[in-house]
Amino acid sequence: MGLGWLDDAAFVLGTELSLDEVLRDGVRTSVARCWVDGSTVASQGAHTVIAKCFHSKAMAHNSGGFGIVREWAGLATIPGAPQMLAADLDLGVIVMADLGEVTTLADVLGGSDPDAAVEAGRAWGRGLGATMRGADVATFRRLVRTADPQTLSAGGPASPRLPGRGASRLADLLDDGVLSEEATAEVGLFAELAGGDDAVLTQADPCPGNIVIPADAPDATFIDFEASSVHHPAVDVAHLQVPWVSCDDSGQVNGTFRDAAMAGYREVGPAVSDDMIALAATAATLQTTELSLEPLQRRDAPGRFGSGRQRLVSRWRWVADHPGRTPQLALMCGRAADLAVQEWGWPSELETVPCFAQMTRT
Rank of each mutant, 00 (worst) to 15 (best):
G4C: 02
G4L: 10
W5H: 05
W5F: 10
T15M: 08
L17M: 11
D20G: 05
E21G: 01
V22R: 06
D25I: 03
T29S: 13
V31Q: 11
V31D: 03
C34V: 06
C34I: 05
S39Y: 04
T40E: 12
G45W: 12
A46S: 13
T48G: 08
I50D: 00
A51E: 00
A51P: 01
K52L: 08
F54G: 02
H55N: 10
A60F: 05
N62M: 13
G64S: 13
G65L: 09
F66C: 09
G67W: 01
R70T: 08
T77C: 14
T77E: 07
I78V: 15
Q83E: 14
L85N: 06
A87M: 07
L89G: 08
V95Y: 06
D98Y: 03
G100T: 13
E101K: 08
E101T: 09
A106L: 11
A106Q: 12
G111N: 07
G111I: 10
P114W: 06
A117K: 03
E119L: 15
R122Y: 12
G127K: 06
G127E: 04
R133I: 00
D136F: 12
T139K: 11
R141T: 03
V144G: 01
R145V: 14
P149C: 06
L152S: 07
S153C: 06
G155F: 01
A158L: 14
R161I: 09
G164W: 03
G164Q: 06
R169Y: 02
L170E: 07
D172R: 14
D175V: 00
S180G: 15
S180D: 09
E181T: 12
A183V: 05
A183C: 09
E186L: 13
G188P: 12
G188N: 14
L189G: 12
D197P: 05
D198Q: 15
T202Q: 10
P206H: 00
P206V: 00
A217L: 07
P218V: 11
I223D: 06
A227V: 06
H231Y: 01
P233C: 08
P233N: 09
V235P: 08
D236P: 11
D236G: 09
D236S: 14
A238W: 05
H239V: 02
L240Y: 08
L240N: 08
S246D: 15
C247S: 09
S250M: 13
G251P: 04
D259P: 02
D259E: 15
A261F: 07
A263F: 04
R266Q: 13
V268E: 02
G269T: 03
G269M: 02
A271V: 14
D274K: 00
I277E: 03
I277P: 02
A281E: 10
A281Y: 07
A283P: 01
T288F: 12
L293H: 05
E294A: 15
E294I: 14
Q297Y: 06
R298M: 12
R299S: 13
G306K: 10
G308N: 05
R309F: 07
V313D: 01
V313R: 08
D321T: 13
H322A: 10
G324A: 09
T326M: 05
A330Q: 04
A330C: 08
R335L: 14
A336R: 01
L339S: 09
A340D: 10
Q342V: 02
G345I: 11
S348T: 06
S348C: 04
E349N: 09
E351Q: 06
C355V: 14
A357P: 01
A357L: 10
Q358H: 14
Q358G: 10
Q358R: 15
T362V: 10
